[in-house]
Design a protein around this nucleic acid. Structure first.
Lengths: 200, 200, 200, 200
DNA sequence: AATGAATGAGGATTCATTCAT
DNA sequence: CATGAATGAATCCTCATTCAT
């Protein structure tokens, strides 16, 4: 059931299996609607096994949230920022971030849906909330930089970040609902959102 | 408990009380997290009474969803469209829609939050989904009209509608999270979103 | 299932049935060893029904404890004290108390076993502990009165009460274990315990 | 983890550690309320290790019970009987037994509390019950001897033993509940209990 | 012998729904 | 029409026991 390498049991393999199953089941059924037993059988382990790795359903929910929120952050502001920043222009940086979002949402549609399309309010702990806030701040920092460079329109950066990120979530929701997203639509969305952001 | 007029009990008063309580409790606790008993005591009726008016929790959830989704539609495309359409310009019409959203979200924050909480998937019935689709189509129709008039950028109208509505939801979320929205920020958001939409 | 009188359902009947079943099952299996489901089927109700009357197993445990501890107190210091007190002598009063214990333990062997032969420490709340303490104090008060009258030996009344009550519990345990208690043995025990108590 | 002597691991050391931990944890949490894992970590061994030494929790419970019940018996009727019996008088023998009880309860308060916690019924096996019975019989034998010597009151010895042992348990309970037991109170108790026992 | 991850039956509790009054 | 006590399946979590290493 758990992966083994060279005959020795991989210690974290079960934990990973549970985290993966949790993402899938939470996304499909909602955190609140997912039964631990469903989750266990999806992970191929017994219920009790989950509780060896996570003290409670809430802790598991936070672990899943954190794991993917951190990955999303790395996708957006990690290498994307590095390589593109070098290029210099705010527009290019925006493109890096936007495409990073897109890549992340395409590569991990369940994870993105779980992160953005659910009401986590009920069970997220301080650490999870803190990480979410930090990602938001990175977005705000980018907007401020763009404003100082005269390339992003003036006005409350929080509002602009909310509009941009909201637009992306809206787009992702249509994809999840079945829409196909070819290169043309991708370009359309990026251009449109950039026009929402850029200084006239 | 239920309102009476002239001494005779208003038959629909109980139904209204239940719908109001349901909106409040669903928004506060999530549809799945709301117990019928909580809802009943909030409405000031007995649990059994709810079942005289709605055959099931699911039916009640759909009734609440429908009631407000329809109101939202009327806000957006009812009188707003009438009066503003007359004025003619697409930009003015957009402003009417956007301000309509804003007014609705300000007047009924619980209702808007409830409508956008993305965990309806589980229980919405065909009729509810149909109404939601129809609102979306009205948005698409507006975009198409704008494109034909050369005032809205070309490209898949579904994508544009998703971006605009998503942006609004993102904005509303910050308000719900505690942000103040003065006239300046409102104008900023409207201008920005219009720039996302309009033909260059 | 629940008793009815004249066609109207007795409101407290279910509660009583649950309390009775709880006493029986707790005594037989220990508070900790008793499953709520066992208890429910013994009471002839569904599990959920128990929770309409008691918020938790702990609350139910305390309710049973209190109900019988109070009855025991009334048995010991209520009418027994009244009628016997009149007779005046400390010895007669002791007899009243001792016979009260005996009568209670004979009439409600389960209740006595539950009260005295189990470790309640884990779940008793403040009120329950207070009632237990008050009964003990009544015992102490009796001993002090006897000492002032010169009929009970001097020394810490708490120690004497502990010895007497402990002796009774020991006796009750043998009965519970199967011993028969004829009038002869009853008299023997009373005389012996009085000799433990009385001033030489 | 387990004690070693001269570099070789003492085979019984683990077993002893488990028995000690079991006494402590059973007394603190109740047999039923004690988890094997709690017990294991208190003993400083792995759960699986306990099962190398005891086939089941029940077996462990019986082992603890037996170990201490036997020690108690030795305390009461071993050397106490030897040395004191020689002295001859029943009163002196009683004093030996009573002081033996006192010494045992003072030296091993956990063990005494564990032995008297009346929820053993569920898991004690035939051997444990037999040992308990044999101690009781030793008490009965003492009483019979005293009756034959005319120094202990007539009547069913079982009743007298139950009263005496019960009185002691009651006394020990107050100590466990926090009462201090100076020499004065000790003497008071011994005198009182002997007066309960002795022929008038 | 020792380890501790895994197991899964069992326990306390919740809650949508029914129905006798 | 309204009531709310009763129901019992379903939920989260615990824990004695096993077994591969």
């Amino acid at each position: 059931m758990t992966a083994t390498i060279g005959g020795a049991s991989e210690p974290q393999a079960t934990r990973e299996a549970v985290l993966d199953a949790a993402l899938a089941v939470f996304t499909e059924h909602t955190y609140g609607g997912a039964a631990m037993s469903t989750l266990a059988s999806r992970a191929g382990v017994a219920v009790g096994t989950i509780y060896r790795h996570f003290p409670s359903k809430e802790a598991l929910g936070n672990a899943v949230y954190l794991r993917w929120k951190v990955q999303l952050a790395e996708h957006l502001f990690g290498d994307a920022a590095d390589s593109t920043n070098a290029a210099g222009s705010i527009r290019a940086e925006f493109s890096g971030i936007w495409r990073g979002l897109l890549r992340f949402a395409a590569a991990h549609p369940d994870a993105f849906a779980f992160l953005e399309l659910q009401q986590h309010a009920g069970y997220l702990d301080a650490q999870s909330i803190e990480v979410a806030r930090r990602i938001d701040q990175a977005g705000v920092a980018f907007v401020v930089r763009g404003q100082q460079a005269g390339e992003i329109r003036d006005g409350d950066p929080d509002v602009l970040v909310a509009l941009v990120y909201g637009a992306f979530v809206g787009l992702a929701a249509t994809v999840r609902a079945g829409a196909e997203l070819g290169e043309q639509r991708i370009q359309l969305a990026e251009d449109a959102v950039w026009d929402m952001l850029r200084a006239r």
